[in-house]
Amino acid sequence: MEEQESPFQASVKPGLTIGLVTLVLTYIAYFIDSSLLASAWFGLVALVVFFVLIIFFGKQYRSDLGGFMSFGTAFNFSFITMIISGLVTLVGQILLYHVIDPSLPQVLGELSFEAGLNMMESFGQNPDDLAPEMLDEMKANAESNYTLTGQLKNFGFGLIAYAIIALILAAILKKRDKSLEF
């Protein structure tokens, strides 16, 4: 009898693949126009690609298991795949932000700050009504997301998001063998 891969073993290759695809998208966006990296549209496209690839690889793994997968197995596969993908992306972004273009974090921080102000205006809040100290704090927070510490902190918070997303993906990917029910 052929031994099946554990969710951890099965998630390594998809995790690396998704991480590399995400990095390729990031670097393409950077070379086209670095301001794309701070746009909501780029984030949305990356998120859709991320979900589609995890579901694709999850269905492949489920078929490798004989067409059925428990919720727990689907959760483990999805979560581990996202962690591996996140680590690959993190390393690639650290290289981009701190080795290839060290001025990029400040540029992206400023763009994020401006996007936040524009969002406030679209909700009817006038940024001029805010205290200068509050605006300075908002700008510093926006810029800190692109520092090495900010990236590591965001990855840590991302683990919580990965767990929630993995729960959703597990519900999509699970499939019970109804012939085994009595």
Rank of each mutant, 00 (worst) to 15 (best):
G86Q: 06
L90H: 01
G67S: 12
S78F: 00
N76V: 05
L96Q: 09
G67N: 14
A74N: 05
F75N: 01
L87A: 07
M82L: 11
L87M: 05
V91A: 09
G92W: 09
V91E: 03
A74T: 06
F77W: 05
T89Y: 13
G86N: 09
T73W: 06
I84L: 05
I80N: 07
I94R: 10
L95W: 12
I94G: 13
L87W: 05
S85N: 05
T89A: 15
I94T: 13
N76D: 11
V88T: 15
I80Q: 11
L87N: 01
V99D: 12
T81S: 00
V88L: 10
I83H: 06
V88K: 06
F77N: 01
L96A: 10
M69I: 04
T89V: 13
I80P: 02
G92L: 13
H98Q: 15
V88F: 09
H98N: 15
I83E: 05
F75P: 00
F71Y: 10
I94N: 13
G86P: 05
T89G: 14
V99W: 11
M82K: 03
S78D: 01
I94D: 10
I94W: 14
T73M: 13
M82Y: 07
F71G: 03
T89I: 11
M69Q: 06
L96H: 08
I80V: 14
N76E: 09
M69P: 01
S70L: 00
A74Y: 05
T73H: 14
L95Y: 15
G92K: 11
F77R: 02
I94P: 10
L96M: 12
T89S: 15
I84R: 02
G92I: 07
I83V: 08
L95A: 14
A74P: 08
T81F: 00
L90I: 04
I83K: 08
G67H: 12
G67E: 09
Y97H: 15
L95D: 12
G67F: 13
F68E: 14
L90N: 04
V88A: 11
G72N: 13
L90D: 02
F79A: 07
F77S: 02
Q93W: 04
V91I: 10
H98T: 15
S85G: 07
S78V: 00
S70I: 00
I84W: 07
V99Y: 14
Y97S: 10
G86E: 02
L95K: 09
I94Q: 12
L87P: 03
M69S: 04
M69K: 04
G67C: 14
I94Y: 12
L96R: 06
F79E: 01
F75K: 00
I94C: 11
L95G: 11
V88E: 09
V88P: 09
N76S: 15
T73N: 12
F79C: 07
Q93D: 13
H98S: 15
G86T: 06
F75H: 01
G86A: 07
V99G: 11
S85P: 03
F71K: 03
F79I: 05
M82Q: 08
F75T: 03
I83D: 03
I84S: 04
Y97C: 12
F77H: 02
I94S: 13
S78L: 02
S85T: 01
V99F: 14
S70T: 03
H98L: 11
V99K: 13
S70E: 02
S78N: 03
T89E: 08
G67V: 06
